[in-house]
């Protein structure tokens, strides 16, 4: 699905070669500051590498219309952002922005249940707790029916039990639709349990002569 060749981004990333397979769940694993989120942002062209190529389905990402790319390769950032409006507005905003068909209310309601959200569609989104916002944001991207999902710590604000239920649902959803996911996590447990493929940041980062951090 993705291929990175000789990619450099500032002094954060230096990757010789990396392949991310399609229709698989790939986990990016590493400690904070190891460049996981940066790598994720390269994949939907939220940032452009200083050197090297990022290929999506064999095409150089810089030659693809970035907005169209992001509608196929949807990303959920680390901090869930709620837009003005209700839970329903927030669930639908991705579909609306990407100009895709709006799902029915019944679909939205069952999504709330599946994500363990006991909220009404008409509730004000700004009044939700951190964990609830995270799940609304997660539901929002799943509804977009994208080819690829990029998740940056999608369950960081959830307790362990909810995390399991939500992750079970998300992975099943993606596998059923034969979609691809790349997920950043610092939880070994999550990575072990849900990843088809693991990428360790320490293994893909090639050092540039100097030890890391000395050029900060």
């Amino acid at each position: 699905m993705f291929e990175l060749k000789q990619v450099t981004y500032q002094d954060i990333l230096q990757i010789d070669q990396l392949v991310i397979p399609s229709q698989k769940i790939t986990c990016l694993f590493g400690e904070s500051g190891s460049g996981k989120s940066t790598l994720l942002r390269l994949l939907n062209h939220m940032i452009t590498p200083d050197e090297g190529d990022v290929l999506y389905q064999g095409d150089d990402i810089e030659k693809i219309d970035p907005v169209q790319l992001r509608r196929n390769v949807v990303m959920l950032g680390q901090d869930p952002v709620m837009f003005e409006g209700t839970v329903k507005d927030n669930l639908l905003i991705g579909v609306r922005l990407a100009e895709k068909d709006e799902p029915r209310s019944s679909t939205l309601k069952s999504m709330l249940t599946d994500l363990q959200l006991h909220k009404s569609l008409d509730d004000d989104a700004s009044k939700l707790s951190g964990g609830e916002k995270q799940r609304v944001a997660l539901g929002r991207v799943l509804l977009m029916d994208a080819k690829v999902y990029l998740f940056d710590e999608p369950t960081s604000a959830l307790d362990d039990d909810t995390e399991d239920v939500v992750m079970d649902y998300v992975t099943e959803y993606i596998q059923q639709k034969r979609q691809t996911a790349v997920m950043v996590t610092h939880s070994k447990e999550i990575a072990d349990r849900y990843a088809d493929q693991m990428i360790y940041m320490t293994e893909i980062q090639s050092q540039r002569g100097e030890p890391h951090g000395s050029n900060a």
Partner: peptide, 11 residues
């Protein structure tokens, strides 16, 4: 952040 999040969704 809001602008960034919207861009990630293909805005």
């Amino acid at each position: 952040q809001e602008v960034d999040a919207a861009l990630m969704l293909g805005a």
